[in-house]
Design a protein around this nucleic acid. Structure first.
Lengths: 145, 145
DNA sequence: AGGAAATAGTCAGTGCACTGAGCAACTCGC
DNA sequence: GCGAGTTGCTCAGTGCACTGACTATTTCCT
């Protein structure tokens, strides 16, 4: 069996895309706060005081990953975990002032970075790319919702 | 500062795409052999007896990651690492018969999986998606080649 | 030939991401 | 109101992926 051309394999391309993104992120956005961490901060700005389960659905990460991630952000003082008095299973997540400040700073930087990242495509292509990735990801998540 | 819509962020979408792909891979292709591992096997079918450095360029992974990955494949008997007698720094990688057999088996399965993965898009859109991702990834890799 | 620079690989450390097992707390049905 | 099932979280284990520091080998320049 001959070798296959990986440039026609969406999984391989997805990995390369994410890898390229991570590299650009650390140089243009932040060395301390990663892209998934920003996603968590952003979700907490949008919906304050949610629990980890709800958060994990919002950012599309599983509960174990969220637990690690939130613990790291907690250690850096960007958020607090408070046991829900109404429901003792839940950790209610509260963004600290510092967490909100970090989010504010990164919002502008990510916007700048996204421009650079997508610069090789014209505006129509950029819109197409985002829409097509979204459709494939949505459909796949549907399968194992 | 208000929250941002992550569905317009290519990095977030890239992560979701890769995540969806990984999930489908483990159910449709293999539970033991991951997609990056398949990329390595495939590279060794295409170019036998290369060293880890060359391999890392082919599959777009850095040398530490390759070392781990190759060690795992070696432990499973899918390849062998031989010190190059011509150049004592190099590990020459040799696919075993079993490694070649695993590759053969996975080639057909990945083809099937890619079809399912991209099924939400029509044929033209599929081609567009792969091409656009490729261009963005290539350009970003160019920056820090 | 002999020392400086480049190259291949390893190792430690950090972070993302998943599964599967297990625990504590809540809800529902009777 | 009590037991069964569900839900939220944690923990251990594995694998991907990077940086930065280090070792060993080769190459290149004088």
């Amino acid at each position: 069996m001959a070798a296959v051309d990986l440039s026609t394999h969406p999984g391989h391309l997805a990995r390369r895309l994410q890898q390229a993104h991570t590299l650009l992120w650390t140089t243009m956005v932040s060395e301390e706060t990663t892209s998934p961490q920003f996603a968590v901060l952003n979700a907490l700005v949008e919906k304050p005081d949610i629990d980890q389960r709800t958060l994990s659905e919002h950012v599309h990460l599983d509960r174990s990953t969220i637990a690690d991630l939130v613990a790291r952000l907690g250690r850096r003082g960007l958020l607090e975990r408070v046991r829900d008095p109404r429901d003792g299973r839940r950790n209610v997540l509260k963004l600290t002032d510092e967490g909100a400040a970090v989010h504010r700073k990164l919002v502008t930087r990510t916007a700048r970075m996204n421009k650079v990242f997508l610069a090789p495509l014209d505006e129509g292509e950029q819109e197409t790319l985002l829409r097509l990735i979204g459709r494939v990801a949505d459909a796949a998540e549907e399968l194992r919702g």
